[in-house]
Design a protein around this nucleic acid. Sequence first.
DNA 1: CTGAATCCTTTACGATACTG
DNA 2: CAGTATCGTAAAGGATTCAG
Lengths: 123, 123
Amino acid sequence: MVTVNRPEDGGGGHVCGIDTAMEVIGGKWKVLILWALHEGPERRFGELRRMVPGITEKVLASHLREMEADGIVRRVSYEEVPPRVEYGLTKDGVRLNDALEPLAAWGRERREDREREEGTGPG
Amino acid sequence: MVTVNRPEDGGGGHVCGIDTAMEVIGGKWKVLILWALHEGPERRFGELRRMVPGITEKVLASHLREMEADGIVRRVSYEEVPPRVEYGLTKDGVRLNDALEPLAAWGRERREDREREEGTGPG
DNA sequence: CTGAATCCTTTACGATACTG
DNA sequence: CAGTATCGTAAAGGATTCAG
C-alpha cells in the first residue's frame, strides 16, 4: 500500500491528489510515451522506440507495463508472425493527457522565457 | 545542458513542454512542498518540515534550493537571532501550482475510483 | 518484431551528527 | 532555528545479450 502524505487534510478540505498522479507519470520517460501515444491512434513497440530517441527497450517495456497496470495504456497483441503489438491510451489515459496539458503549457512558456533570458543575459 | 527529446516536432507543431515541467517537479517531495507553500502566505523551514511529515531536513533543504534555483520558490532570510527564513511561491510558482490543479483533480478522481473498485472487486 | 534477462552505474533518498 | 556534511541504501535507469 502506498503511504500518502496528506499535509492539511483536516484543514483545507481537498486532498492533494498530485501524489497519485506523480506515481503514475513518475518514470523518466512516461510523459514522453504518453505524449507519443496521444499523437496517433495506435503505436507499435518499435515505433515508440523511435519516437522516444534515448530510451532503451528495457525501460520502454517496463514503463509500458507499469502504465498498463495503472490502467492508462492498453496493449493489444495480435498473435501473428512476426509478432505485432499495438499500444494505445485508455479513456483514463486520455484524461490524464488532457490534465497534463496545462502543465505542458507552463513548461513551454517557461522554456521560451529562459531562452529569451539567455539573450538578455545575467551579466 | 538539458537534452530535450522532441518526438514529433516537425509533425505536430506543439512541442512537449511536460519534460521541462517534470524536471522542476520531479523530486519526490516537491509537489508536496509546492502544495504546502500554496496553502498560506509564507512558511518557515520547520513549519514546512512539519507539513511534510516523512521528509528529512537534508532533502527539504536541497529541494527548496533547487526550487529556488528554478525560480518557483522565493527565499527570504531575515538576518536575526534566532535565525528566521521564510519561503513563498514566486509568480511562476503560483502559475505552476495552478497548472498542477487538473492533474491533482485527475489523481483525486482516480483514487476515489480505485477505492470504489476495492469494494466491487475484480473477481 | 517484441520483448525478457542479466549486470552495472547513477542518482535520489534516508539516517545521523554537527554547526552558525 | 535553519541549515550543512557525511555515509549508507534502495531504486531507477542504461548497456548488452538472449529468446519466442
